[in-house]
């Protein structure tokens, strides 16, 4: 039991209790923002697994989110599949997509990873935009019903909120199981020093493939929930901005710190909405948003578990120097 009461897990518990009682206190509008925050939590935790534990910065994580969203949307549109069945295909297809993106990773490191992940997201987006027969192209798919779970239909947003909350909790728990296992340790070793990891007998490539696949699956789950929340999907939603926003959440919360990611998600989901109120004062709320981000970065140690300095350093210093000592 003692092992469970870490500061991170306590933070997690507090946030979850807060989230659990939140619907009783808020308006439908705020509830919708909180559901968005929940989706961001799952999405960002999946990226944090890849970035914070796996040590690979993906600038195209929105690709998996959109694949998840479109898989469930297309299955409903063409075959009228309910969420309980399409969910399995979401896992399968996003997992395969993650695997596909991991394949070139055996040969590249550093900045090339950035370029490949960024272009992967762009390619996925272009496919969605142009594959008219399946995705309906630019029009998008509208009228997706709320979640139908083995015949039980979610009629209001409160049910949706709690359903998503279960996914958040499950994601957090699975991430923690993973991190404290052989796989998680091997991934962290590769992140810290890939040469030493190799010298200890870790096979780098299979581990990379696995972490990409798992990360993609969780991002896909978040995306599939998004489709049912919004009731429509269109290609322009899943742009590079979505990926960058996700990276911001992970970096603010701290690399490898999953409870920090939850705080980051709440923060970056609520802040832009809150700033909307000041539209009458000045129309440049995105500037204010940017300023707040910068200030948060400066005050990084004031955020629980924030490892921002290391995170920023990690962006600019290549850890995976290729020479063998």
């Amino acid at each position: 039991m003692k092992k469970l009461l870490t500061p991170k897990n306590i933070t997690f518990a507090i946030i979850m209790v807060g989230m659990a009682i939140a619907p009783l206190l808020t308006s439908p509008y705020s509830l919708r923002i909180l559901i968005t925050a929940e989706l961001n939590m799952i999405f960002a935790m999946s990226l944090n697994l890849l970035m914070g534990i796996g040590g690979t910065v993906s600038f195209g994580h929105a690709a998996f989110y959109s694949i998840g969203a479109y898989t469930t949307a297309c299955l409903w549109y063409h075959f009228k599949w309910a969420y309980s069945t399409s969910f399995l295909l979401v896992i399968l297809i996003t997992g395969l997509a993650g695997l596909l993106l991991a394949l070139p990773m055996s040969r590249i490191t550093g900045r090339y990873v950035t370029i490949i992940t960024l272009s992967f997201a762009e390619i996925v987006n272009l496919i969605i935009k142009n594959w008219d027969k399946v995705t309906l192209g630019q029009m998008g798919i509208v009228g997706i019903p709320s979640i139908n779970l083995f015949g039980f239909k979610f009629t209001n947003k409160i049910q949706f909120f709690y359903f998503t909350l279960i996914f958040v909790i499950l994601t957090y728990i699975i991430m923690n199981w993973l991190v404290n296992s052989k796989l998680g340790r091997n991934l962290q070793a590769m992140r810290d020093d890939s040469i030493a990891a190799e010298a200890m007998g870790i096979k780098l490539f299979p581990n990379k493939v696995i972490v990409f696949t798992i990360s993609a699956i969780f991002a896909g789950i978040a995306g599939s929930l998004y489709a049912h929340l919004m009731t429509y999907v269109e290609p322009s939603t899943f742009n590079a901005n979505l990926s960058f926003n996700c990276i911001s959440i992970v970096v603010i919360g701290g690399l490898g710190n999953f409870s920090g990611t939850l705080i980051g998600s709440l923060f970056l989901s609520i802040l832009p909405e809150y700033l909307r109120r000041f539209d009458f004062l000045f129309k440049y709320r995105m500037i204010a948003y940017g300023l707040v981000l910068v200030i948060v970065m400066w005050l990084n140690h004031s955020i629980p578990g924030g490892k921002l300095k290391e995170a920023v350093k990690g962006f600019f210093v290549r850890k995976d120097k290729m020479e063998v000592a």
Binding site: I195, A199, G256
Partner: peptide, 11 residues
């Protein structure tokens, strides 16, 4: 082992 110590620094 390595000439310049290569521990897993964040672990």
């Amino acid at each position: 082992t390595f000439q310049n110590i290569r521990l897993f620094s964040n672990m």
